[in-house]
Structure formats: C-alpha cells, structure tokens
Deep mutational scan, measured.
Amino acid sequence: MQRVNMIMAESPGLITICLLGYLLSAECTVFLDHENANKILNRPKRYNSGKLEEFVQGNLERECMEEKCSFEEAREVFENTERTTEFWKQYVDGDQCESNPCLNGGSCKDDINSYECWCPFGFEGKNCELDVTCNIKNGRCEQFCKNSADNKVVCSCTEGYRLAENQKSCEPAVPFPCGRVSVSQTSKLTRAETVFPDVDYVNSTEAETILDNITQSTQSFNDFTRVVGGEDAKPGQFPWQVVLNGKVDAFCGGSIVNEKWIVTAAHCVETGVKITVVAGEHNIEETEHTEQKRNVIRIIPHHNYNAAINKYNHDIALLELDEPLVLNSYVTPICIADKEYTNIFLKFGSGYVSGWGRVFHKGRSALVLQYLRVPLVDRATCLRSTKFTIYNNMFCAGFHEGGRDSCQGDSGGPHVTEVEGTSFLTGIISWGEECAMKGKYGIYTKVSRYVNWIKEKTKLT
C-alpha cells in the first residue's frame, strides 16, 4: 500500500490518463441519441435557420407576430419608411378606419389613436360632414345658397324668414311668412316636400332668348283662358290664391305678392273693366268669414305684352289694390325667389296649380277651390304637342294621358313649387288646347323671366 501511494504521488498524470480511459469505455446513459432527441424537440425550422439574422431580410411573422416588435424591426421587413409607417399605425392600436367614419364618399386613412378623412370636392370637416359648395344638395341650405369668396357655403332665406341657429334652416321672422300653410287642420295635408338634388348652379339658368321682337298675326285659340281631375282644397291650404270678379264672377285667378299687390295673367284683364279681388276665398257660393274683398285701382301688364300681336306672350300683369290686405292664416303671400332659384325650383319637376275653373272641358265651374299636382314636361315634348308657338318664356306641365289639367277660369292662378315646406311661385296658368285632352298640356308663363320686374313694381313704400 505504501508503494502504491508513492507511485500516485510521483505520477499524477498517469492516474488522470487511467481515469479518462475508464470513462470513455463506459456506456453513456444520461444523453439520448440524435434521433430520439429530435422526437422530443420537434420544432419547425425557421426561415433563416442556421444563418445569422443580421444578414437576412426581415420576416413579418418572425419579427412582429411571434413577439412584439419595434418600429426598427418592422422597418427591416418593409425596407421602406412609408410602408412601415402605414403598417405601424394599425399594428400599434388597430384600424381606426374600420367603422368607416368618413361621410359623403370620403376616404379614410388610419393613424395612431386617430384617423384622417380625405374629402371629395365640396366637403370638409373631420368626417367630411361639412358642405362647402352650393353645387351639392344646395349646400344643405333649406332655401338659398351662395358661395363666399373663400368658396364656403353661405345660406340665406327669402323675405319674412331668418336663418336658424344651425345656419342652414329657415324659420319665420314674421307672423305670416310667405308660402307657408298655417291653418292647423290643413298642415297635415301639406304636399310632399321637395329635397334639393345635386345641381350645376353655374349652368342652372337656361341660355334662352326671349323672342321679344317676333311679330306674329293673332292666333285663334280655343278655350285658351284655361282644375280638371283635381281635388277639393281645404280652407287655408292655398292662402296665396285669390279669385278675380268682373263682368262675371271667378273669371280668373291670381296670387298675393304682398298686402297691396296681386300677380295674374295679362290676358285676364281689360282696361276700363272694374275688377274686384277676393282673398281668403274657399267656396265661392258661401260666406265663410275668411274672405277679404278689395278693388283694383291700377293694372300693370308687362311692358312687352301686346294682345294685338299675341294674347299669351309675356302673359303676366300686376294688380294694385285700393287697401292693403290683412295677412292671416287664410290670406298669405306666395314666396318669389330670384331668377336663378325660381328656375331651379321649376326644374324640380312638379308643381301645384289651383283655381275655381271648370271641372271638365266646357263644363261647370268649381264651387270649392280645386288643386292638382302636375309634372313638368320637357321642352321637346311640349313643342311636338301643339302647332302653336311655345315661346321661351312659357313652359308645359300636365299629363300625356289627359284627364287632369287646369281649365277655363283658372287662368292667372299660381303654379307653385314647394321647397322644404315653403311654396314659391314658378308659373302662372296661361293657356292650353281644350282641357285635359290626351297628348295636350297646360301652358304656363315662366315666372323666372319676370321676377325682377315683379319685385321692382310691387315694392311697398
């Protein structure tokens, strides 16, 4: 034993070699072989497995989906700052455009905790909710729209109204504003409101030439003092309507412009014939205590009207009353817009006519005020429907199939267009061939041609 100890002390290297040989010859039971080890760690190889990531292109799944990435790591994937920024906006807080917040056709661009709407022409605001041009839906104005110097929408209202708090709607500024039905039992019968379409306001006024200088022999019209197929109006439903009495009662109609003036057809009036105007009328054979009678003290036909040349060209006249009318729910003026808007309103496509005229061709006159909704007829169809001249200051309205029309005794009465609950004068009943005849239409004086003249002559002093 002493000898062994001496050998170990003198030859430590020998001992180490012996131990190493023993270990190498022993069977290893701690580690699995290569094949079995792979069965336990069965993990798919990654895209760049075996390579240094710093030297390969980034992978979106590896960089940002398996674990949260930084902007720089995302930049490695896209290799483009702009594309990385677009991805980053949604990656950080989701897609803010998912709810489609942009209105009126706006395009949404996502941002971090926010979004941006790219608005089409005519709109602005956070969600493109603000109209900035009158060309689109009248700028959301209830009545009139004008573009300011910086191309912003400025709404306005006709006389007797003021802008509401929203700067879009119009509200009454006087007790009985024009064009409004205020009798409670008839307010439910107000005709369907007309909503502004998209309009090209630059070209809204037709490029028409008034044929002022045409000389033409007097034409022989049949029954051209021209509501057939209409309905009984309720008291106060058309408070701007008046009836004219002269040699015979209810020979023509008219509309209240203001307390002192009536507008009617020029062919209705004769110099030297006494005319009485009755406002607030409903049943011409009954006294309903809503009527107001006034005498006409002055007749002003349009300066281009000449019955000797043509009885229905420039067929418009103004009547001055001896005493002002007292405005109330049964006696209310009709609204008159400017030339541009009167023309736009007419193009809405349908209007209402009213009167006490004959209820059928050569038949009896109506006792109760009649009204009828009539569609506008395109000019080409209008011209083809008659052998008589249709001037540019006239328009056609009615039904091709016949059966409904204005008729004798309705002449001078109103053709009105309702705009968001307020009625505007767009025409004056003038003439036609018979009444409600198939293929024939009622012919009306186009008020847009005469609004400046009306307003100039009827100013209240």
Results as ranks from 00 to 15, higher is better:
363 G>W: 05
241 Q>Y: 11
102 C>P: 02
280 G>T: 02
111 D>R: 10
164 A>E: 06
20 L>N: 02
159 E>S: 10
137 K>C: 05
212 D>F: 12
290 T>H: 12
133 T>C: 05
298 R>G: 06
6 M>H: 09
114 S>T: 14
31 F>G: 06
350 S>L: 12
403 G>E: 15
87 F>E: 02
12 P>V: 13
122 G>I: 03
433 E>H: 13
330 Y>S: 03
183 V>N: 11
264 T>F: 02
36 N>H: 12
52 L>R: 06
147 N>K: 12
434 E>M: 12
96 Q>E: 15
117 C>M: 01
301 P>W: 07
259 E>C: 04
381 T>A: 11
285 E>G: 06
256 I>Q: 00
104 N>R: 05
338 D>H: 05
444 Y>V: 05
44 P>R: 10
152 K>F: 10
426 T>S: 03
361 H>D: 15
198 D>M: 09
356 W>H: 08
294 R>P: 01
433 E>V: 06
154 V>R: 10
428 I>K: 01
61 E>M: 04
454 I>G: 00
428 I>W: 05
393 N>P: 02
176 F>D: 03
456 E>G: 07
130 L>K: 12
410 D>W: 15
239 P>L: 01
229 G>F: 14
277 V>H: 01
373 R>T: 08
452 N>V: 06
246 G>Q: 05
258 N>W: 00
191 R>D: 11
429 I>F: 15
252 C>S: 01
349 G>T: 04
131 D>N: 14
14 L>Y: 11
372 L>F: 13
30 V>I: 13
305 Y>M: 02
54 E>I: 00
344 I>Y: 15
238 F>P: 03
382 C>H: 03
188 K>V: 12
3 R>G: 15
147 N>Y: 10
161 Y>Q: 03
313 N>I: 09
261 W>F: 08
418 E>G: 05
89 K>I: 08
238 F>I: 07
174 V>D: 07
382 C>T: 02
192 A>D: 13
220 S>K: 12
89 K>E: 06
302 H>C: 02
161 Y>D: 01
289 H>S: 14
85 T>H: 07
451 V>S: 11
224 F>S: 15
296 V>Y: 01
394 M>Y: 05
452 N>I: 04
423 S>C: 08
308 A>Y: 10
52 L>G: 11
34 H>V: 14
125 G>D: 03
430 S>A: 09
52 L>Q: 15
175 P>E: 14
306 N>D: 09
366 A>L: 08
73 E>L: 00
49 S>Y: 05
265 A>M: 02
367 L>Y: 12
331 V>H: 00
338 D>P: 12
17 I>F: 09
226 R>E: 15
237 Q>D: 06
237 Q>P: 08
397 A>L: 01
29 T>S: 13
370 Q>M: 05
423 S>D: 03
127 N>V: 08
385 S>F: 15
309 I>D: 08
299 I>G: 05
